[in-house]
Design a protein around this nucleic acid. Structure first.
Lengths: 303, 303
DNA sequence: TTTTCATGTTTGTCCTGGACAAAATGCTTT
DNA sequence: AAAGCATTTTGTCCAGGACAAACATGAAAA
């Protein structure tokens, strides 16, 4: 039995599910940039190779970081890797980096309990805010790098997400329920399914003593607006991961700003907004999560 | 400001996200059955009305229950409602039904803590297995009915799922870790994102004293097989909700059976399998969740 | 220097109408 | 009942065209 036999044929729908790139986009890329150029089966239908999927995954990552399709689609695998390395960059102190790497190692050995205990130890030592900004954020980056390189399996990635969620959720619930202003509602738009981003912001706000409520992910705009009005919230906080369809993010936010009562503020952040310049009334775009405590403080003095 | 202005235009991609029906399918239904026949905007692109979405949601539900498109697509809203009522049927004792309705009422008032406490009370009183089969299963059905009728918002539905998960997960962890055979691995295929189904089965197996591990949802077949082999599991348990693409479920299972070592059993269940007749070696199709304890017992005597 | 505006280019999504295999159904025979 | 065969139903894929919104670029204004 050779490898080709046990590897199932990747049809265009499978590629869409795995990479998040739509069928129409895949076809039009093939027409315009000559990549990906899949084999065809007996019926003339596209069959993608594992190599092409790998390349597409990296391309997706680079597009999320703001590169343009015409620049990255013609590149081969080594060139893509190189470009990715240049864009990840050295972000944090070497000591922190070492701690993060040891946590990743635990993860790769499937030691879920030890991973959670280690995270908890750091949490207790650093406090919630520092834990998020100095530990979780860099680990997320490292996990992302491993993921792109195919050195992490899907179950391992799930295990990581789940343990981090456990730790942060527990920390949020252990806090004395903040009843002081502002009242903040946390959620994401229907096309955003990543919950870690908004959970981290919620943790930062809880630590800052705000009254926080989470609606969960993938909530229709009308439902968000209704809850925010009915619950007399001061702020709606939204997260847009790098994977959010970046073409529509400005339009979506503008539409929501019109729907939501003008006196309720919007705080929006996440990778999809990083290189956008959005100006809307009573709306703050957060460029990095470290700015959250200052934002809460500013709200208290300003409003 | 009238209603049409505040209701955002539903484009075909939005309908796909909301109903789970693919763009191609929507277009071909329009061609063949003359429904849905959306308006067109200035560019000639489809704009679906809220009524059409409602109808499509019910149609999706009926298809999941095994009806055929040619039979249900031509029906109008009242006829669809009627058909749905006929198919939900009276399932449980009136007393149980009353308890379930009171829980739904709590949910609709957003009393999440009381909801969780009520569930926990029933859990303690009935024990884990009876709690799942007599309370959670019927409530799921009722929630589904409310959902279809548009009487439950997305956040309310999320709230329900989250609280039930909390209660079941906690119950699973409180059990003394079962070290007795069989060793069972719980997960779902990449196209299945619903986690409640497999979680309920896991709870039943934990209560039956088996050694249980969960991989989470949306796991590639190759990863499942690798884990099951490496961890020397006896059984892989899979859940296929009614929303699983039913065209492919037989093919997917067959493919997985070939990938997984023959001596590892497969237990599969869920709505998508209800009217299938699948015969595969060392593979059991569960028609209802009540059969799980017997299945575990049977495994112990038989193997 | 930074910001605003006008221009041309890039890019994802939608369109039509055709094709086909796999699944479901109905009918006949063990 | 169960199994085999023919027919209909049905979802997904294809090609190639179209277009607006997002983006880049460079000139003019603050």
């Amino acid at each position: 039995m050779n490898l080709q036999e046990i590897t199932p044929a990747m049809r265009i729908a499978d590629v869409e599910r795995d990479t998040g790139i739509g069928k129409d986009t895949l076809r039009v890329w093939e027409r315009r940039y000559d990549f990906p150029r899949p084999d065809r089966d007996a019926l003339g239908e596209r069959v993608y190779s594992a190599d092409q999927i790998d390349r597409l995954r990296i391309i997706r990552r680079l597009l999320d970081k703001g590169m343009r399709p015409s620049k990255v689609l013609p590149l081969d695998l080594p060139a893509l890797q190189q470009l990715l390395d240049k864009h990840s960059g050295p972000l944090h102190s070497p000591a922190r980096h070492a701690i993060c790497l040891s946590l990743v190692k635990l993860l790769r050995m499937h030691r879920s309990r030890e991973l959670r205990e280690s995270l908890n130890r750091i949490l207790v030592q650093d406090g919630l805010q520092k834990f998020i900004t100095d530990t979780i954020v860099p680990i997320n980056g490292i996990i992302g790098d491993y993921w792109i390189r195919g050195e992490l399996s899907v179950p391992e990635e799930h295990l990581y997400t789940e343990q981090v969620q456990n730790v942060i959720r527990h920390a949020i619930h252990s806090h004395a329920p903040g009843e002081s202003a502002p009242r903040i509602l946390f959620t994401t738009f229907p096309d955003e399914e990543h919950c870690l981003g908004i959970l981290m912001v919620e943790a930062m706000c809880v630590a800052a003593g705000a009254h926080c409520t989470s609606l969960g992910t993938r909530i229709p705009l009308s439902d968000i607006s209704k809850y925010a009005s009915d619950g007399r919230y001061d702020v709606v906080a939204l997260s847009f991961s790098a994977a959010y369809p970046s073409r529509t993010v400005t339009k979506d936010l503008t539409q929501f700003r019109e729907l939501l009562p003008a006196k309720i503020a919007i705080w929006a952040g996440g990778g999809a907004l990083n290189q956008k310049r959005i100006k809307l009334p009573n709306t703050t775009i957060l460029t990095n999560i470290e700015g959250v405590p200052a934002l809460v403080a500013h709200w208290r003095t300003g409003a």
